[in-house]
Simulated scan of single mutants.
Amino acid sequence: MLKQNVYLVGPMGAGKSTIGRLLSQELKLEFIDSDKEIEDRCGCNIPWIFDVEGEQGFRDRESQAIDDITQQSGILLATGGGAVNRPENRQHLSARGTVVYLCTSVEQQLARTEKDKNRPLLQRPNPKKVLQELMVQRDPLYREVADIIVHTDESNPKLVVQEIIDKLQELNVVL
């Protein structure tokens, strides 16, 4: 029995959606992907939101979604990579559940995202440089908000799920 919600943070390509779906089944929590929730609420995809409203407009929508979602109970939320940029998002995540940082290398991110056209921040020349800059900016924020840090490079998602469950038990989050 889970005492509280679980929130996954980390860079794009860390495995938040894949691991989140598997972990939510194991913990018997409802899985919510914040990016999909934003698309459902808006009725359009994230690249369109970036094109029309810019990153600021997307981040406003993301903050509202995170505030709403984290007030629910019995959920496992996979956040977008930039969700930690705003202090209010970090506050909501940290105060309303257990935060798991899925940490991965820039090389692994590139391998996992190279064909994904639904990532506006990578639709630029030199995506590796973009990912490196984002990691420098965001890694300290992921670490600040994290209760648990798990490395996902070259790891089988099922093994990562088990590692997270073990760490949740160590924190007495899972009874």
Rank of each mutant, 00 (worst) to 15 (best):
residue 133 E to A: 09
residue 1 M to G: 14
residue 5 N to I: 03
residue 130 V to N: 01
residue 144 E to N: 13
residue 12 M to C: 05
residue 34 S to H: 08
residue 18 T to W: 03
residue 169 Q to P: 00
residue 8 L to G: 08
residue 122 L to E: 09
residue 173 V to T: 09
residue 71 Q to K: 15
residue 103 C to L: 02
residue 53 E to M: 09
residue 25 Q to G: 05
residue 1 M to I: 02
residue 47 P to G: 10
residue 34 S to P: 08
residue 110 L to A: 01
residue 122 L to M: 08
residue 52 V to L: 06
residue 155 S to G: 04
residue 86 R to N: 07
residue 82 G to K: 07
residue 45 N to P: 00
residue 98 T to G: 05
residue 144 E to H: 15
residue 112 R to I: 00
residue 81 G to T: 05
residue 27 L to R: 01
residue 50 F to W: 13
residue 127 P to H: 04
residue 122 L to C: 08
residue 105 S to W: 10
residue 130 V to T: 14
residue 107 E to D: 15
residue 50 F to T: 12
residue 39 E to W: 07
residue 61 R to N: 07
residue 33 D to Y: 05
residue 156 N to K: 05
residue 62 E to A: 11
residue 68 D to E: 15
residue 17 S to I: 00
residue 151 H to E: 15
residue 44 C to A: 08
residue 131 L to K: 07
residue 89 N to T: 14
residue 6 V to L: 07
residue 55 E to R: 12
residue 170 E to A: 12
residue 3 K to G: 11
residue 64 Q to K: 13
residue 134 L to K: 09
residue 18 T to H: 04
residue 6 V to Y: 13
residue 47 P to D: 15
residue 16 K to I: 00
residue 133 E to N: 14
residue 126 N to H: 14
residue 48 W to M: 11
residue 105 S to N: 05
residue 142 Y to E: 08
residue 17 S to H: 04
residue 49 I to R: 02
residue 83 A to C: 14
residue 173 V to F: 01
residue 175 L to V: 03
residue 87 P to Q: 15
residue 44 C to G: 00
residue 174 V to H: 06
residue 135 M to S: 12
residue 120 P to A: 07
residue 109 Q to R: 03
residue 97 G to W: 08
residue 59 R to H: 10
residue 24 S to V: 00
residue 19 I to A: 03
residue 121 L to I: 15
residue 40 D to T: 04
residue 24 S to P: 10
residue 89 N to C: 12
residue 36 K to L: 12
residue 124 R to I: 02
residue 55 E to S: 10
residue 5 N to C: 06
residue 101 Y to W: 15
residue 4 Q to G: 08
residue 80 G to N: 07
residue 83 A to M: 08
residue 129 K to C: 02
residue 50 F to K: 14
residue 54 G to L: 07
residue 45 N to G: 12
residue 57 G to R: 10
residue 12 M to D: 03
residue 141 L to F: 14
residue 57 G to K: 10
residue 165 I to D: 00
residue 67 D to L: 11
residue 118 N to I: 00
residue 55 E to P: 10
residue 133 E to K: 14
residue 14 A to M: 05
residue 130 V to D: 01
residue 9 V to Y: 13
residue 142 Y to I: 06
residue 11 P to D: 02
residue 83 A to N: 08
residue 84 V to D: 11
residue 166 D to Q: 13
residue 144 E to A: 02
residue 62 E to V: 11
residue 157 P to K: 03
residue 11 P to I: 08
residue 150 V to Q: 13
residue 110 L to N: 01
residue 149 I to H: 03
residue 70 T to G: 12
residue 91 Q to E: 15
residue 122 L to H: 09
residue 94 S to I: 02
residue 105 S to Y: 10
residue 12 M to H: 05
residue 136 V to N: 10
residue 145 V to S: 15
residue 78 A to W: 04
residue 60 D to Q: 14
residue 103 C to S: 13
residue 49 I to W: 11
residue 127 P to D: 04
residue 8 L to K: 11
residue 21 R to V: 05
residue 142 Y to L: 03
residue 20 G to K: 01
residue 38 I to K: 07
residue 165 I to F: 00
